[in-house]
Each structure stands twice: as C-alpha cells, then as structure tokens.
C-alpha cells in the first residue's frame, strides 16, 4: 500500500540542499522516513482533537533495536504521535486517528484489533513517574500477573527481579520490595515505571519525556538504561532536550506544528540539518 508514500519519502530524501533552501516553508518531510528492518511502520497519520488537526500526514518507521527520538517545540504533536503508537489516544474524548500504523505488518487501528494485547506489546513510560500506590513488588508484578505471564510465585519473583535489574533499580530496592513505590525518589520512581513496562516483555517501548521530571544524575542513569535496553527493544522517545536526543538516539525526527519536518541519522540532523525549521530549532532560534 505504501509504495507511493515510500517513493515520496525517498524522493524528498533525494532532493538537493539547494532545492530545499529554495522552498524553506515546505512542510513535506525531509529525509528518509523508512528503515531497513522496521518494527512499526506509520504512513500518512492524521490526528484530530475534535475539529483541530494535531498531526498532519506523518510517516515514520521505527526500526528494530534502534532508538528514535522525537524533538520539536511544545505543542508540535510529538507526544500525540507517540500516544498513537499504542492507541493511548483512545482514552481521550474526541480524538480521531487516520492513516495507517502497523506493528510487524499488522494494522493496530484495525477494527478487530484489541488494544489490550497491543499495549502489552508496545509499552509506555510517561512523562511524570506514575507508579501505582502499591508496593514496589506489586508495581512490577502487576503486568505479568494480569497477562498470566508466569505460572507460579517463584517465576514471578524471578521476573520481578530480572525487570528491576534491567531497569538498574534492583540493588537499591531489593531489601524493601514491600514498601510503596510512591515512596521512592523521582528518578527511582521513573526506573520503577520502566521496570514495570519491561516486565511484560514488550517489543517496542514508548517514552514520553521520561527525564523531564528528573535531576541530571537520575537522567544520566535513565539514559544509560535506554542505551542498554536498545539491545532488546525498539524505543521511541519524545524529549525536549536536544542533548538527550543526541546522546541516546540513532535517528531523530523533528516535528513542527503537527508536521514531521525532518528525519535522519541523529548526528546528521544535529550537525547538518537540511530544513530551515530544523536548523532554526536546533540552533536555538526558537523552541
């Protein structure tokens, strides 16, 4: 279905810099939106909140074992786009999604598709750490338990430990698993939320500004963690910090007013932006 779209993406990608600078207000995506081994494929995604269009024809792939970062000024639609990827927008009244979003070839907005298993496959970490007001153990064990991923207590214990270890939290909390997750520090809470997400073994992890509420030290820990998680997961991360995007991601997508302006290798985008808007943003002229 998407041959024309892909062709278009490549065509734009093939445009010369001279061609681009001649039409700096073009909103067509610059750069190649496709990857060689995509996990999620989004084509011409439109999102409306009531009558207001928040996302305009965005196409983007998320590849296996890569971190894609999405940057852009506030209100540009990057979080909205991220929340489309696991149908979290379903919970918002008046939100309408059009276009095609596929996970491993399956359209996730298919009428017959159940969002519950989808969200088990596409996990999400939110901007504000939101542990359940339950014990640390229960926070991590909740997902596996409702999905029936383990057969007995020993397996569940092992899974909780493994998840907390992957999230780099095990050593800090192993002696107080029965204490409330809300009693942890902000950075620890966010890592607990990451542990909770990876406990259900998702294939893709979406992170919506996961470090915006954290101090630099906690941020560094989480960033390190994201880098380690890349070995097993595909990660899409929304961030306000361009430094963070540069540090953790392989590809970067720049959003502006609902349009995907430019996609490319992260170091390409930051060292040699091809679109005027991207350049303005990363050089700090606005945003």
């Amino acid at each position: 279905m998407s041959t024309t779209v892909e062709a278009m993406g490549q065509r734009v990608g093939a445009m010369s810099a001279a061609e681009l600078s001649s039409r700096p207000d073009s909103r067509a995506t610059v750069g190649d939106v496709t990857v060689a081994n995509p996990r999620m494929v989004c084509r011409e995604v439109d999102v409306w909140y009531g009558s207001k269009q928040a996302i305009k024809g965005v196409s983007l792939d998320i590849g296996k074992n890569e971190v894609v970062s999405m940057i852009g000024p506030s209100g540009c639609g990057k979080s909205t786009f991220l929340r489309c990827l696991n149908r979290m927008n379903d919970t918002i009244d008046g939100c309408r999604v059009e276009g095609s979003i596929q996970l491993d070839g399956q359209d996730i907005y298919d009428k017959g598709l159940d969002p519950v298993p989808l969200r088990a496959q596409v996990g999400m970490v939110f901007q504000k750490p939101n542990p359940f007001p339950k014990s640390i153990y229960e926070n991590v064990a909740y997902g596996p338990r409702i999905h029936g991923l383990t057969n007995n207590k020993a397996e569940l214990d092992a899974l909780v430990e493994a998840s907390l270890r992957k999230a780099g939290l095990w050593n800090e909390v192993k002696d107080r698993l029965d204490q409330p997750g809300t009693g942890l520090s902000g950075g620890q809470q966010q890592r607990l939320c990451i542990a909770r997400t990876i406990a259900v073994s998702p294939e893709v992890i979406l992170m919506d500004e996961p470090c915006s509420a954290l101090d630099p030290i906690a941020t560094a820990i989480v960033e390190e963690l994201i880098d380690e998680l890349r070995a097993n997961y595909s990660i899409a991360i929304v961030t306000h910090s361009m430094q963070q995007a540069a540090r953790v991601s392989q590809r970067t997508a720049y959003f502006h007013m609902g349009d995907l302006i430019e996609v490319g290798e992260t170091n390409e985008i930051f060292t040699n932006p091809r679109h005027k808007l991207t350049e303005d943003y990363i050089t700090g002229r606005f945003g």
């Binding site: 979290m88 298993p117 969200r119 939101n130 997902g143």
Partner: peptide, 27 residues
C-alpha cells in the same frame, strides 16, 4: 483519582475494567 494512574494501568495492558477494579476504585 489522577489520570496518570489510569494511563499507567492501561499502559501495561490492563483492560478498562481491570484498570477500574484494580486501581481506580480502590483509590
């Protein structure tokens, strides 16, 4: 009950009813 709790539950794949009974109602 803050919406973040609902999002957290939905985010790990709880069904709407599970979200209600496991998280929202107790709170």
């Amino acid at each position: 009950v803050p919406p973040s709790i609902r999002e957290a539950a939905l985010g790990v794949g709880a069904s709407p009813l599970q979200t209600q009974f496991h998280h929202v109602l107790p709170l």
